[in-house]
Simulated assay, not measured.
Amino acid sequence: MSKKYQIATIEGDGIGPEVTQATMQVLDEACGKGGLHFEMLDGGANHYVKSGHVLPEDTFDACRRMDAILHGAAGMPGIVYPDGTEVGNDLHLRLRFRLDLYANVRPIKLLPGVLSPLRAFENGGIDYVIIRENTEGLYASRGAGVLLRDEFASDSLIITRKGTERVAKFAFELARKRRGAQADGKARVTVCDKANILRAYAFFRAVCDDVHRDFSDVEIDYAYADAITVHLLKRPDFYDVIVAENMFGDIISDLGAATVGGMGISPSGEIGDQHALFQGAHGSAPDIAGQNLASPVATILSAVMMLRWLGDKHGDAGITQAGDRIEAAVGKVLAEKIAVPRDLGGQASCTEMTEAVCKELAA
């Protein structure tokens, strides 16, 4: 590692503190004590109850200033705003919009030793990435929709050229870096939309076509949002990188996660030009919080994404290699059944999973 990195760390709610502490332990093992400095910060639904702020300004300032953001989970049942929307989700939504984290990156990869419900692809046949546009689409109406006399409600779908160009460019650049689709090795970006029905999605597709002109080495493909739900089950090995509008990307990324073992082992990153946030794709699971039952795997793999992002941004091969070592250690632990979390049919506690990964790193 060429430098010491400052990590803005928000444990959040429910199982958030447990999986965050577990991930910090793994990162210290892989990067060496002192390689990363974790600045512990307030935020989340429980903090909102205590202070009236889901994202305090000093937390936001630290997130903006530091090298990356590591987040556990946020949200608690019943803690909602007056309009009924969840307080916990607002934490990373505020960070997303204020730091312009426009690319939501969801790797869909079948890990060694994990049983997929798609029996035909159990030997490593699933490995693609969904890039969800993160600041526009239907979710751009958050807090701005219309509810008229309790009789009529509407939200607007927003697609801009700038927003689509940059997320499409992100997707094509990622496809260039990967090894291609599992089925044929081709670098490919699939545009997921409903261009046959709505002008907004036809525009999204047209802008992606415009961006593709600068990436002639990457194949472009198209899929309607309803059809792709079938394709992700029948031929997931065809896909390399998928780019989608905000809501469609949200839906298909959870579907993809289900095909490779579930949300408990699914990482995510929210990435902009200058800042990035990393967290497991799962929720705060308050029903098992504080019982040492949570799987830390999703957060650990999100930290792998964080290390690779830092490595790319700073030209630091050492921190990239640390991420590769963590992913390999997780794969070995699962493949050899050294420890298997409960959501994958095992009995390993959060502590046992963490210790097993750390032991592999130290070997």
Rank of each mutant, 00 (worst) to 15 (best):
V304L: 01
F203Y: 13
A62Y: 14
G35V: 02
A335F: 12
S141P: 09
M247C: 06
G345S: 04
I197K: 00
C63M: 03
P17R: 12
G12S: 04
Y201A: 04
F215N: 07
I159A: 05
F60S: 04
R178N: 14
A363S: 13
D67C: 02
R166D: 08
N104H: 03
A363R: 15
S302Y: 09
H275F: 02
K194P: 03
D226G: 07
L233H: 08
V230M: 13
Y5V: 07
V114H: 11
K169P: 01
A181S: 15
A195P: 03
D193C: 00
P267V: 05
H231N: 10
R166W: 03
K234Q: 14
P56Y: 10
D240G: 12
G256R: 05
S2V: 12
C358R: 14
D226K: 08
G163E: 05
R178S: 12
E122P: 03
D273E: 12
A285Q: 02
V260A: 10
I252W: 09
E270S: 14
H37T: 13
K186R: 15
D184S: 08
E151K: 10
A322I: 01
K186S: 13
A183H: 11
Q21W: 12
I10L: 11
T59Y: 11
R188A: 10
G124F: 13
D58C: 10
A317S: 14
D61V: 07
Q6L: 06
C192G: 03
S284W: 00
V167F: 04
L157P: 06
F121W: 15
K4A: 07
A329T: 10
I130Y: 08
L148T: 09
V260Y: 00
G315Q: 15
V189Q: 08
E173T: 12
R308V: 05
R308Y: 01
C358L: 02
Q6D: 14
G44P: 07
A195C: 11
V191C: 11
G32Y: 10
T299D: 08
L111I: 06
L293A: 03
A202G: 15
A276T: 01
G346S: 11
L99R: 05
K359N: 13
H275K: 11
F38V: 01
L27M: 14
V146H: 15
H37Y: 13
R65F: 02
G261K: 02
E219K: 07
A74L: 00
V218Q: 07
L55A: 05
A120M: 06
H37N: 15
T160A: 14
I288V: 06
F97C: 00
A362M: 09
Y128F: 15
S266M: 12
A22G: 04
V26T: 10
A68D: 06
G272K: 01
V297Y: 01
E151G: 04
L93R: 15
M66P: 05
G125K: 14
A289H: 03
A348M: 06
L157N: 12
T160L: 13
C208G: 08
V54K: 02
V304Y: 01
G323E: 13
